[in-house]
Design a protein around this nucleic acid. Structure first.
Lengths: 217, 217
DNA sequence: TGTAGGTGACTGACCGGTCAATCGAACCGA
DNA sequence: TCGGTTCGATTGACCGGTCAGTCACCTACA
């Protein structure tokens, strides 16, 4: 990631083969799944010799680890950054979090598919390995919710950890629906989903009592 | 399943080897993951010769398919049955659904782990294969929600399909947390979670406006 | 001419699936 | 009662394909 860790020699025309391998891996892992693809598929997709993959990476696993850690850290930073903005209401903070995750999928669907399918939901392999990082995301969202719980705007009988889990679970399920082609994919759908998730989790499904005047716009 | 489909010769002491293999597969798949275990692990766990696995099943995949289909159908039937009960409110119906799923996990954690990790969340392999069955579950929950939307007790601007997705997603995320050992497992926790999921999804996280008189409850 | 970058044939382990052989309960005919 | 026959259940050694990872070699730039 850090530029100084890569050789500076960068000839203008020299493509970053390492990056090409990572990008190819995203495509291949997304298309065939981590377990159903061969390292040669990745090399072919990257238009690179088989052996070069092992020049840059220790193993097939390491490629996935790197893809996950790189992207996940960006999300953790984004969540922390959102929480820091004091002028924003908690509901809007959650909207921003949903927005960030859904936009991540919009712009890099293959990468998000790989991360969700092969890591965050893979309880026996990469999920366990990266459990600490995954928890950090829950914790970040929980911190946001906790802000609203302590000032009374959110119910106090639902713990912030549990709320964070429901919130993240709902988003991941919607992403999964896109991954499985169960929901249509369009800019409008993405925008719509952001609002719906937040409305559902914050406002709930139940309609306000009909015989009472609406208390808030 | 049906007794008449198995040979009637059933000596009293004859163990149903086929069943033993299925049970062993649940244990092994849950412990090591479908991809990281060998057929010989299943045979060893069942205390049965390697070849016998192929006497009863065509392939390793077929074992998982059978485990999934058997259990999933029970859940689909349960959801349909819950929806049929006309004296129960929609919120209580959702509670019963959450209850059923969580109790399934409570009583057969390994089987549920395998179904969730290896099937419902495996977008590149078994998930795609069983997509139709998985959709049926969403659809069943959506049907329940639709009942409340049409009588005005649930908001009309959140589609029942989307609501079902959030609801199921929240539950699966909680199950995943148990699977990953992120949440403590006890009868109390299970019971508590049932109520919390329904409260969160139906009632939302936001507290009723404090300056207004409580309208219900 | 040293070295980082790049190549791809090869190897060896692993594992899903096969199959020829054996077991043993039930039935049969004498 | 007893050898014989049948056939599904059971065994586990073995086969063959697959594929992650290795390595000897090449190339081009500084």
């Amino acid at each position: 990631m850090a530029p100084e860790s890569r050789p500076v020699r960068a000839r203008a025309a020299a493509p970053d083969k390492r990056r090409m391998i990572l990008d190819a891996a995203v495509t291949v892992f997304a298309r065939q799944g981590f377990h159903h693809c061969r390292v040669s598929d990745v090399a072919d997709e990257a238009r690179v010799a088989y052996g070069l993959v092992y020049h840059y990476f220790d193993s097939k696993e390491q490629i996935l680890n790197e893809l996950f850690l790189e992207r996940w850290q960006i999300m953790l930073d984004a969540i922390a950054e959102i929480d820091r903005r004091q002028e924003v209401s908690v509901r809007d903070k959650l909207y921003l979090v949903a927005s960030f995750i859904i936009d991540s999928y919009r712009h890099e669907p293959d990468l998000m598919k790989v991360i969700i399918v092969e890591v965050t939901r893979a309880a026996n392999s990469f999920g366990r390995l990266h459990l600490a990082k995954i928890r950090e995301a829950y914790a970040g969202i929980a911190t946001i919710v906790e802000g609203a719980r302590s000032d009374g705007s959110f119910k106090s009988d639902i713990s912030s950890e549990f709320a964070a889990m429901c919130f993240y679970g709902a988003i991941e399920q919607v992403l999964t629906a896109w991954i499985f082609d169960l929901l249509p994919r369009s800019d409008g759908e993405y925008e719509h989903a952001k609002g719906l998730v937040v409305d559902t989790i914050c406002g709930g499904l139940e309609a306000p009592a009909a015989d009472a005047p609406a208390l808030s716009g």
